[in-house]
């Protein structure tokens, strides 16, 4: 298992460096690195520090957060289809963020943006856990997820269409598909602290999730409090998905693909899958964000387009296996 973590960490580091080197300004790798670290005069340090660094940092953090929450929700719901983007948690976060932006709350206090997104995500994941729970079947989870994401998507579109701003309605695509273009360090500082707190909370659920694989009664016999586990999970997911969505929009499928690929490598142990999925998610999102800048550099291709192209076939495959009765 050690080689797996080392490989993933190296991959993330390499992709982070490539992300810093990717951009239309054509800055050489060494020049870019020097001006990033040492600063200096001219526009190059501004490009490296104010434009590319926040983009790479957010790619790392949002990807890691989505991978981590995907693995945690799948562990708790014991269902491989649970993924924040698909079952409406990110959608609810986007609705919260859009409400904060359009009501002007986020102008008053910048913190209102991650706070309302977090509230939206908490409502979404809370509803799901209440409806599907650890015992709910795949059908319940998917139906609840479809209902919540449809509601959140409609609410987001409604709020943006009601806005007096002519650009707002065009941004429905961003909130549904996600993008990291032109984010600044302000967004990093808004999103990162709550996400770290959420990651710490999810980290503590590892043992409980391991116990849960033996069944609920076995878990409670081992001293795992079901209520405590549930609340830590809901809070952790909301703290990660809310701020991540507030700055990057809804990016689906990362939390689905990554745990699915990595599960065999960690012998399906949830506590080991959590950190592995965080690293894997960071790698996937950084790679997707590099790809959108290389494929259509001038068009701001949305991240969700790429992750869906990779993830949707896998999702169908999972449904197929679930339907034919085999455990995934």
């Amino acid at each position: 298992m050690k080689p797996l973590f080392a490989t993933l960490a190296l991959l993330v580091a390499a992709l982070f460096a490539i992300s810093l080197m990717t951009g239309p300004a054509g800055i050489g790798a060494l020049d870019g690195l020097r001006s990033l670290i040492l600063g200096g005069d001219g526009p190059m340090p501004i490009v490296m520090r104010e434009i590319r660094l926040p983009r790479a940092l957010l790619g790392l953090a949002v990807g890691a957060g989505l991978g981590l929450t995907g693995a945690a929700m799948q562990g708790y719901l014991r269902n491989p289809l649970a993924e924040p983007g698909l079952i409406g948690v990110s959608g609810m976060a986007a609705l919260g963020a859009v409400i904060a932006i359009q009501t002007g709350l986020s102008l008053g206090t910048a913190l209102a943006l991650p706070a309302t997104a977090l509230t939206g995500a908490a409502i979404g994941v809370g509803l799901l856990v209440a409806l599907a729970g650890p015992r709910g079947g795949s059908v319940t989870l998917i139906l609840a997820g479809i209902a919540i994401s449809a509601l959140a998507g409609a609410g987001t579109a409604l709020v943006l269409n009601l806005s007096p701003n002519p650009y707002a309605a065009n941004e429905i695509v961003f909130w549904l598909m996600g993008s990291l273009a032109d984010r600044s360090m302000v967004h990093v500082w808004l999103a990162l602290p709550p996400m770290l707190l959420g990651a710490a909370l999810i980290w503590t659920t590892g043992r409980g999730l391991d116990a849960l694989t033996l069944g609920e009664s076995a878990a409670s016999a081992m001293g795992v409090s079901a209520t405590g586990l549930r609340w830590r999970l809901i809070a952790g997911v909301a703290l990660i998905v809310g701020p991540a969505t507030a700055v990057a929009g809804v990016i689906g499928f990362v939390g689905l693909v990554v745990p699915h690929i990595l599960r065999p490598w960690v012998a399906a142990r949830p506590s080991a899958l959590l950190p592995a999925s965080a690293l894997g998610g960071a790698a996937l999102l950084l790679a997707a964000d590099i790809a959108v800048r290389l494929i259509l550099p001038e068009r701001d291709l949305k991240l969700g387009v790429l992750t869906a192209l990779v993830g949707a076939p896998l999702f169908l495959h999972l449904i197929w296996k679930t339907r034919s009765g085999g455990r995934v």
Partner: peptide
């Protein structure tokens, strides 16, 4: 324009002010 949009948020990017 009145109201808020992400599209206009780029005009507030710290790099532009720099």
């Amino acid at each position: 324009w009145p109201g808020q949009s992400r599209g206009e948020a780029i005009l507030d990017h710290p790099a532009l002010a720099r």
